[in-house]
């Protein structure tokens, strides 16, 4: 239990739609250890996006307890949550979410801007991270001058640049062809081997298999896939 980076107990999320209360997540318990590569596998509407939002501190649970890096998340205000997102979590989105007018380098720099790091150090760190994902010769390119796979690599570099506690990926291959998707997954595996904790949300069983641990989510409930424990 000591080396749990992420620990959720009895997390419930309910939305109120008119008079009806819709429970999206039911009593979720989840532990993630340092160095884990966890895939959360589930069909659309299973509550996996909601779970990801809560893990990513973008949303707060209706009830339950959420600890991330020994910090109680469910009691923080907007400003503190912003700091947690900045320091502890690196997001990788399905649609890359790069700012189109910024160069690859500037996109990777962005989280460091919010972390209050000076320009010289920012440039150095971002350049370093871009070469780690194999884009050292594309740092001045804008997103529209990059292929889908390259864009996702920029997004991964952006997620990694603050050296977050966990890398949180939401369908990272969803917008890519199979071959490119595979390359991205190889990159994730490599990053994981270097010691980074990864939580990946996906509906694709094949993609989920690249992880070393899978949990299933269905109708708001989690179930561990025993074979991978």
């Amino acid at each position: 239990m000591q080396d749990n980076i992420l620990s959720m107990s009895s997390i419930t999320k309910a939305y109120r739609m008119g008079n009806e209360e819709q429970i999206v997540l039911k009593q979720i318990d989840l532990q993630v250890r340092k160095g884990d590569f966890l895939a959360v596998l589930g069909p659309s509407g299973s509550g996996k996006s909601t779970l990801m939002n809560i893990i990513g501190c973008l949303d707060s649970p209706s009830s339950g307890n959420y600890m991330l890096s020994n910090q109680q998340i469910n009691e923080l205000n907007e400003k503190e949550l912003a700091a947690i997102r900045n320091k502890e979590i690196g997001f990788v989105f399905q649609q890359f979410q790069l700012l189109p007018r910024l160069s690859a380098l500037q996109n990777v720099e962005l989280p460091l801007v919010y972390a209050g790091i000076n320009e010289k150090e920012r440039k150095q760190k971002a350049t370093e991270m871009l070469s780690r994902v194999g884009l050292e010769d594309k740092i001045q390119n804008r997103p529209n001058q990059l292929s889908g796979g390259q864009q996702q690599r920029v997004a991964i570099a952006r997620a990694m640049v603050t050296e977050p506690t966990i890398l949180l990926a939401d369908e990272p291959t969803g917008a890519l062809d199979q071959k490119t998707g595979q390359q991205i997954m190889e990159l994730f595996q490599q990053i994981n081997r270097e010691g980074k904790t990864i939580v990946m949300i996906t509906h694709d069983r094949e993609i989920a298999k690249t992880a070393n641990r899978i949990v299933h989510i269905l109708d708001g409930q989690l179930r561990e896939e025993a074979a991978y424990v």
Binding site: G56, K79, R85, F91, Y114
Partner: peptide, 16 residues
């Protein structure tokens, strides 16, 4: 809106 959301996800405080 999406840009704002992204910036927030990357750690931008509301004040910023």
């Amino acid at each position: 809106t999406a840009e704002i959301g992204l910036r927030k996800a990357l750690g931008a405080e509301p004040k910023r």
